[in-house]
C-alpha cells in the first residue's frame, strides 16, 4: 500500500459533481418525485404511488391509451424510415464517384440537409406541401392528385416520412460511403478474377465491410426517429386528429398543454427507459462485433 493519499483531488472533481447534480440528477429526481404524485394546480400535490405507471401500461385508461397509441405510431414511423433510409443510403453510397472533384461536390450536396436546423426543415416542408402556395402541394393537386396533409391522415404520414427521408438519408449514405472507401482495391480485383457478378460483389465484399457503419447508422436513425419532435410538430402539429402524434408530442401535450405533471413525469421516465434499453442493446451488439473484429486482427 504505497498509494499516495491526497484528498485534495476531490476539490478538483467537485465542480463537475455540482454541475451534473444541478443539471441532471436533481431535475431527474424532481421528475421521479412528480411521477408519484398528482396535482390540481396551485402547487397542491397528492401522493399517487405507482398509479400513473399502472395506468400507462393499461390501454383501457385515457393515459395508457394515448401513450400506447403514440408509442405504436412512433415505432411504426421508425420502422418505415429505417426500411427506406438504410437501403436508399446504401444505393446512394454505391453510386457515388470514388475519385475526382465530383467526390467533394457529392459530399457537400449530401451534407446540406444535415446542416439545416430541424424547425427550419419542418417549416420548409410545411410550406412546400401546402396546396395553395406550396410547390409540391400545388403541383400534386394540379395534376389531379388530391393531396392535403392538413386534412388527410395518409397525406400527413407521407409528408412526415418523405421529410425525414429527405433530411436524414444523407447521414446513412455518408456513413456507408466511409465504409466503402475502406475496402482495398485488391478485393474488387480478386472478385473480378473470381468472376463475381455485381450482386455477388455487393453480397460478398461490400455488405460485410459496411456491417459496422450500418449498425451505427441504424442506431442513430432509430434513436433520432424515436425521439422525433420538432419536424412533425411544425408540419402537422400531431394531426390531423392524433394521426401523427408521436410519443414526444404526446408528452409535451400532457405536460405543458394539460399541465398534468404527474402523468407526464411517469410517461417521460418510461420513455427514457425504453431509449436506454435500446441504446444498451445496440451498444452490446456493437462492442461484440468490435471484439470479433479485434480477434480476427489479432490472429492475422
Amino acid at each position: 500500500m504505497d498509494k499516495t493519499v491526497n484528498q485534495k483531488a476531490w476539490f478538483l472533481v467537485l465542480p463537475v459533481f455540482l454541475v451534473v447534480a444541478f443539471s441532471a440528477v436533481l431535475p431527474l429526481m424532481t421528475v421521479v418525485n412528480y411521477s408519484m404524485q398528482d396535482t390540481f394546480g396551485n402547487n397542491q400535490f397528492f401522493w399517487n404511488g405507482v398509479g400513473w405507471f399502472k395506468e400507462l401500461l393499461d390501454p383501457s385508461t385515457d393515459l395508457g391509451g394515448r401513450f400506447l397509441a403514440s408509442l405504436g405510431r412512433n415505432l411504426f414511423f421508425s420502422l418505415v424510415i429505417l426500411a427506406i433510409e438504410v437501403p436508399l443510403g446504401i444505393v446512394v453510397a454505391l453510386s457515388m464517384p470514388r475519385q475526382g472533384w465530383t467526390v467533394a461536390a457529392c459530399l457537400v450536396i449530401l451534407a446540406l440537409p444535415l446542416l439545416i436546423p430541424w424547425n427550419v426543415v419542418g417549416t420548409i416542408w410545411q410550406i412546400f406541401g401546402r396546396p395553395d402556395i406550396g410547390l409540391l402541394g400545388y403541383v400534386l393537386n394540379h395534376i389531379g392528385i388530391d393531396y392535403n396533409y392538413v386534412s388527410n391522415d395518409i397525406d400527413a404520414w407521407v409528408t412526415v416520412i418523405v421529410m425525414d427521408v429527405w433530411h436524414w438519408t444523407s447521414l446513412v449514405a455518408l456513413l456507408c460511403y466511409a465504409g466503402l472507401k475502406s475496402i482495398p482495391e485488391a478485393y474488387y480485383q480478386a472478385a473480378q478474377i473470381d468472376g463475381a457478378s455485381r450482386w455477388a460483389v455487393f453480397k460478398a465484399i461490400q455488405l460485410p465491410k459496411m456491417n459496422r457503419v450500418l449498425l451505427i447508422a441504424v442506431l442513430l436513425r432509430f434513436m433520432d426517429s424515436f425521439m422525433i419532435y420538432t419536424e412533425p410538430f411544425v408540419v402537422t402539429g400531431g394531426g390531423p386528429g392524433n394521426s401523427t402524434t408521436f410519443v414526444s408530442i404526446e408528452l409535451v401535450k400532457i405536460a405543458l398543454g394539460q399541465f398534468d405533471l404527474g402523468k407526464a413525469a411517469a410517461l417521460s421516465l418510461v420513455y427514457n427507459l425504453i431509449i436506454l434499453i435500446v441504446c444498451w442493446i445496440f451498444y452490446t451488439v456493437m462492442t461484440n462485433a468490435g471484439n470479433e473484429r479485434k480477434h480476427q486482427e489479432g490472429a492475422a
Binding site: 480485383q189 478474377i193 460478398a204 465484399i205
Partner: peptide, 25 residues
C-alpha cells in the same frame, strides 16, 4: 486466375465456400 500480394478473403463465407466462389460464379 490471379492471386494478389495480400490475402483477399470473403469474410462471411467458410473456407470451403471461399474456394468454391470462383466456380459458383
Amino acid at each position: 486466375a490471379q492471386v494478389f500480394q495480400f490475402p483477399v478473403i470473403y469474410d462471411t463465407m467458410t473456407v470451403g465456400q471461399n474456394l468454391a466462389f470462383p466456380l459458383k460464379n
